[in-house]
Simulated assay, not measured.
Amino acid sequence: MSEKPHRKWMGHPLPDDVTSEMTLVELTWEKGKIEHWIRFGRHSYEHILSGSDRIVGFAPGSIFCFVRWAANGYGTIVSRIDILSAVGRGAPYQTLPFVRPGGELLLKIHGWPKVERVLQAIDAIEALAIDPADASPDYWRHLHNRLTVGEEAHPYTRPEHHAWLKRRRVL
């Protein structure tokens, strides 16, 4: 009888309840130095590695927002936000640092002024009593495209959300 090989993440063994279908994200929080966190999304797995590091896992199709910020003695050196859809086995994906295997990128923004605008858009969606993880992937792509070219994006609306929910049921 052969034993099941132990899967690892950054040298740490992963428990058996982590499926190969999950998209795993490494989160770090060292206040004022490096902050990698999930702004929204429903993780189905969590494993604490240390007081400042943990891994969360997302099921295929889950939409989540991953924020990365870092600073040194001179100020902010990294400020970025990515909104991804977790992918299933065999699906195409883009790779990102700290995300394994990767995900379908819906929004990829760097630089604090643009990151701040994405955070404001997320807040506006939540103000409508809509979980941003349930918002239309097309809206996140729209926001990405508009911010990338320096244009104003339209706000997400309840009618747009209801149309997305109906379309999702049909798909």
Rank of each mutant, 00 (worst) to 15 (best):
V67K: 04
L105I: 15
H144T: 03
F64A: 08
P137A: 07
R169N: 09
A135I: 06
A70L: 04
N145Q: 11
R168C: 02
V18I: 11
Y156G: 04
G102Y: 04
H43D: 08
A86F: 02
P159I: 01
V115I: 08
V67I: 05
W37L: 11
T157C: 07
L106F: 05
P113Y: 03
V18G: 01
G150L: 04
L49P: 12
R42W: 12
D16K: 10
M10I: 05
K4N: 09
G41F: 06
E30D: 14
N72P: 07
H161G: 05
L128W: 04
S62V: 08
L147Q: 10
W29H: 14
D53P: 00
R42D: 15
S50E: 06
I55K: 05
I48D: 03
H6R: 13
A124W: 00
V149D: 06
P13H: 04
A133H: 06
A121E: 08
F98D: 14
D82P: 00
I81N: 03
L24E: 01
Y139E: 03
G57T: 09
D134W: 05
E35G: 01
L14C: 04
E35F: 02
A86I: 11
F98Y: 15
D16M: 02
R100Y: 10
T157L: 13
L143C: 04
L14Q: 09
F40A: 09
K108T: 08
W140Y: 11
L171T: 05
G102A: 09
N72E: 11
S52Y: 13
A124Q: 14
H43W: 03
E126Q: 15
I48E: 12
Q120M: 08
Q94P: 00
A129P: 00
A86T: 02
V149H: 10
E160P: 01
W29Y: 14
R7D: 12
I77P: 03
V87E: 11
I77C: 08
G11S: 09
A121S: 09
G61E: 12
R169I: 03
T19Q: 02
V87H: 06
H6P: 03
H47A: 06
L106W: 10
L107I: 05
L49E: 14
V99I: 14
P113C: 02
L24I: 03
V99M: 09
T95V: 15
P13M: 08
R168D: 11
H161P: 04
R39D: 15
M1D: 05
P137R: 01
L27G: 03
E21T: 13
H12K: 07
I48K: 13
E46W: 00
V87N: 07
E104G: 01
D16A: 15
L27A: 10
Y139R: 06
L14N: 06
G90W: 02
A86N: 02
N145W: 05
S62D: 11
Q94E: 14
D131G: 10
L14M: 15
H144C: 08
V118C: 04
T148H: 10
R89M: 12
Y139L: 09
